[in-house]
Amino acid sequence: MVQLHVVVVCSVVGFLGLVLVILGVASEAATALALVGLSKDGLYDVNKCVYQTTPALACGIVAGLLALAVQIAVTTTSLLCGCCRTWELPRAARHIVGIVLSVVSWIFVIIVVALFIAGAAMNTDQKRQPTTDGKCPVDPGSVLFAAATVFSLVATVSQIASYVLLAPAKGSTKPLATQQQPEVAMGQPRQDADEVVAGGDPLPPSAPPLSQPTEPTSKV
Rank of each mutant, 00 (worst) to 15 (best):
194 D>E: 09
191 Q>E: 08
132 T>V: 14
26 A>L: 08
189 P>S: 14
206 S>Q: 05
40 K>I: 02
20 L>V: 02
100 V>S: 07
217 T>L: 11
130 P>Y: 00
199 G>D: 12
169 A>R: 15
128 R>F: 00
16 L>G: 12
198 A>K: 10
70 V>W: 09
36 V>C: 01
18 L>I: 09
6 V>S: 13
208 P>W: 06
11 S>E: 05
38 L>A: 02
110 I>A: 15
190 R>F: 10
118 A>R: 07
36 V>D: 03
133 D>S: 15
206 S>F: 06
193 A>H: 02
191 Q>N: 07
91 R>G: 05
72 I>F: 11
214 T>W: 08
6 V>Y: 02
196 V>D: 07
11 S>T: 12
219 K>D: 13
85 R>E: 09
184 V>P: 00
115 L>V: 02
184 V>H: 12
47 N>E: 15
200 G>C: 00
182 P>H: 06
164 V>H: 04
201 D>P: 05
136 C>F: 03
211 S>Q: 15
124 T>D: 02
7 V>A: 15
132 T>F: 08
18 L>T: 09
108 F>I: 00
127 K>W: 03
53 T>W: 00
108 F>N: 06
25 V>C: 10
48 K>R: 15
175 P>M: 04
163 Y>V: 06
212 Q>L: 10
151 F>N: 04
47 N>W: 09
160 I>R: 09
53 T>M: 08
8 V>D: 07
156 T>I: 04
175 P>A: 05
159 Q>V: 02
180 Q>G: 04
160 I>P: 00
179 Q>D: 12
96 I>Y: 13
58 A>T: 10
65 L>T: 01
162 S>M: 06
110 I>S: 06
170 K>G: 04
79 L>M: 13
96 I>H: 13
199 G>H: 05
24 G>R: 04
192 D>H: 15
48 K>A: 05
1 M>W: 09
6 V>G: 05
131 T>K: 10
33 L>C: 01
191 Q>H: 03
140 P>Q: 02
38 L>I: 00
52 Q>T: 01
10 C>Y: 00
51 Y>K: 03
214 T>M: 09
151 F>S: 03
79 L>S: 12
27 S>A: 15
32 A>S: 15
24 G>K: 08
11 S>N: 10
88 E>G: 08
160 I>C: 15
216 P>G: 01
95 H>A: 12
78 S>A: 15
44 Y>E: 09
29 A>K: 10
116 F>Y: 11
146 A>P: 00
201 D>S: 05
105 S>Q: 11
3 Q>W: 00
41 D>I: 03
214 T>D: 11
125 D>R: 07
8 V>T: 07
178 T>S: 13
155 A>Q: 07
154 V>D: 00
53 T>K: 13
195 E>W: 14
134 G>W: 03
41 D>V: 06
10 C>N: 14
159 Q>N: 14
196 V>L: 14
73 A>D: 02
211 S>L: 15
68 L>S: 08
99 I>R: 04
148 A>F: 05
1 M>T: 11
214 T>K: 12
98 G>S: 08
131 T>D: 14
8 V>K: 10
37 G>C: 05
189 P>W: 13
9 V>E: 02
27 S>V: 03
80 L>D: 01
68 L>P: 01
